[in-house]
Computed example of a mutant assay.
Amino acid sequence: MTSRQISVEGHDPVSLLIAWLNELIFLFDTEYLLFRHFEIEAITETQVKGRAGGEPYDAQRHDLSSAIKAVTWHEASIMHTDEGYRARIIFDL
């Protein structure tokens, strides 16, 4: 398994989530890494530090018929619920 340390900042929880997701897209675009395990080490309203684990992209094993190009701000939201948090994010494909 391959892992990367990720640290991002934002001015509120929504911008923080978008920054985290954009970092994952950047790592795929530059290093062809796909992540599926995440460990948050520290989180505040404006900063998150953690580790993402996964593997290199393999065309024979991974079907990427439509890759994510970007995270959009359109209707992005985070809501606190009784079970935890619920986020709404729309991606450009």
Results as ranks from 00 to 15, higher is better:
S3E: 07
Y32A: 14
A42F: 04
T72E: 02
H37C: 09
Q5M: 10
R4G: 03
E83F: 04
A87K: 00
T46G: 15
G84N: 10
N22W: 03
P56K: 11
T44A: 08
L21V: 07
D82P: 00
A87R: 01
L16F: 11
D92Q: 08
A59I: 04
I43P: 08
S66R: 15
S65T: 08
R36L: 05
V71W: 02
H80E: 15
G50V: 11
D82N: 10
L33C: 07
L27D: 05
H37F: 14
I90H: 08
V48P: 09
F26M: 07
L21F: 13
T2G: 00
S77F: 14
S66N: 12
V8C: 13
V71Q: 03
H62V: 10
L21T: 04
D29Q: 01
V14L: 09
H62N: 15
K69P: 12
G10L: 09
L21C: 11
I78V: 15
R88A: 11
T44N: 11
R36K: 15
I43L: 13
S15F: 09
F38R: 09
T30S: 14
E39W: 13
L93G: 06
F91N: 03
D29T: 01
L33V: 07
Q5V: 09
L34F: 04
T2L: 10
L16Q: 09
I68F: 02
A76C: 05
Q60H: 00
M1G: 05
H11I: 13
V8A: 12
T81C: 03
R36I: 12
L34H: 08
A76Y: 10
D12R: 12
R4H: 03
E9D: 06
S7M: 12
T44K: 05
V48T: 14
W73S: 07
L93T: 14
D29P: 00
F26T: 06
E55T: 02
A70R: 08
Q5Y: 11
M79N: 06
T30L: 03
F26L: 15
V71M: 07
D12N: 15
Q5S: 11
W73M: 01
D82T: 05
A59C: 00
E41T: 15
I43F: 09
L93Q: 14
E55F: 10
I6D: 03
R61K: 12
T72P: 06
E31H: 13
H37L: 05
D58W: 02
L93P: 09
G54A: 07
L16R: 10
E31W: 04
S7K: 13
K49F: 03
I78L: 15
I6W: 01
S3H: 00
W20Q: 06
I90V: 15
H11R: 13
E39F: 15
S3R: 02
F38Q: 04
S77M: 14
T81G: 01
L17T: 04
L64H: 04
F26W: 13
D63C: 07
A87S: 05
H37T: 11
I78H: 10
M79Q: 09
R4S: 12
I90W: 05
E75G: 02
F91L: 07
L21R: 12
A76T: 03
T81Q: 06
L21P: 08
V8P: 10
E55R: 03
V8H: 09
E31L: 11
D92W: 10
L93A: 15
I78N: 04
S66A: 08
V71P: 02
L21G: 12
V14P: 07
S15W: 10
I40K: 11
E23R: 07
K49L: 10
M1V: 11
